[in-house]
């Protein structure tokens, strides 16, 4: 390739791209998910938290009014956050800002898109708005992440237009057992599909309740066609290392950071442990003197299993 400086070769021509098609494409939406790999996405409830998260190396923040542990404690209906709060958080950091909409609540998602959030989480942590249907995510230019507990659920969400899947875990518990269960479940089923003979794929699609084209794609790729992140119960650097070693490509940490004794130090430690998940000596080093972890509650003792929300 010649390396001389270029001049404008088409000074009189209108640009040949059409902005309406060139923005919000699947490649751009999935691309942002891919850029977040190896990172930590942190729940924040105000600008101060957001700044702490960014300084600690978060790749993105999730703007919400209450962390899942408080939603669990307070009860009541959990809805999309106040737009003023989301804007305050957007103004305070330079990294991507995500926000949650209720399952099926496409109007909340439209509001979040109007606010120009970078990613929408159609989340079981909020109270579902539709008992049968999720949001049709294809018309949106903003990318969506959805939770899943198994491969069928993950592929249904991808079929609806999600460009990132997070294993659900059990948010607000600080107990990693459900995150491990869901991650293992998704990966086990991917392994089964990718080693299955081609003639079994239609039946897998039927059993999983998933689009056959996506089951076929999983068989060819040996992985989901979008990034698989992990959420719901991660509270320590070793938790992050655990789920990354199991096969997660990045982690969401909700209550685990800002419900702990020293959020800034713990946040940075989880960022380092996620990047160097396969280096136990480093995980040991960053795990020292982090102060009190989130107290947490055993996932088997919670009254409301958030992971059961979503269809």
């Amino acid at each position: 390739m010649a390396s001389s400086e270029i001049t404008n070769t088409h000074p009189d021509k209108e640009p040949s791209y059409t902005p309406s098609r060139a923005q919000g494409s699947i490649r751009l939406k999935r691309g942002l998910a891919e850029m977040l790999r190896g990172g930590v996405i942190m729940d924040v409830v105000n600008a101060e938290h957001a700044k702490i998260a960014e300084a600690a190396g978060a790749v993105a923040v999730m703007a919400l009014e209450r962390v899942p542990a408080d939603i669990r404690r307070d009860g009541g209906v959990a809805r999309m956050s106040d737009p003023a709060l989301i804007e305050e958080i957007q103004a305070s950091v330079t990294i991507p800002v995500m926000a949650k909409a209720r399952i099926g609540h496409f109007a909340e998602a439209q509001v979040l898109e109007a606010l120009e959030v970078d990613f929408i989480d159609e989340s079981e942590v909020l109270t579902p708005a539709d008992e049968a249907f999720h949001i049709d995510k294809w018309p949106f230019k903003v990318p969506f992440v959805c939770g899943a507990t198994n491969l069928g659920e993950a592929l249904r969400r991808i079929g609806e237009g999600a460009v990132m899947i997070r294993s659900k875990g059990e948010a607000g518990t600080g107990d990693v057992i459900e995150a491990v269960r869901h991650l293992r479940s998704i990966l086990r089923e991917i392994h089964a599909v990718s080693s299955a003979p081609i003639e079994e794929i239609a039946n897998y699609a039927k059993v999983l309740g998933a689009p056959v084209e996506l089951v076929q794609e999983v068989r060819e790729l040996g992985k989901l066609p979008v990034p698989l992140f992990c959420a719901g119960g991660i509270a320590t650097p070793a938790d992050a290392s655990l789920v990354m070693q199991l096969g997660a490509e990045a982690v969401f940490v909700g209550s685990g950071i800002f419900k702990s004794g020293d959020p800034a130090t713990r946040a940075r430690a989880i960022v380092e442990a996620t990047a160097h998940f396969d280096d136990p000596a480093l995980v040991a080093k960053v795990s020292k003197n982090l102060g009190e972890p989130m107290v947490g509650i055993s996932a088997s003792e919670v009254e409301t299993k958030l992971a059961n929300r979503g269809w």
Binding site: M1, A2, S25, E116
Partner: peptide, 27 residues
């Protein structure tokens, strides 16, 4: 700008080429 301003547009790779490289610009 933000993710909503992410775009795809062709890139001219040198002085003589038409703009035919698929440019993917994400934030």
């Amino acid at each position: 700008g933000r993710q909503l301003d992410s775009f795809e547009a062709p890139i001219a790779l040198d002085g003589t080429s038409p703009p035919n490289y698929p440019g993917v610009f994400i934030r």
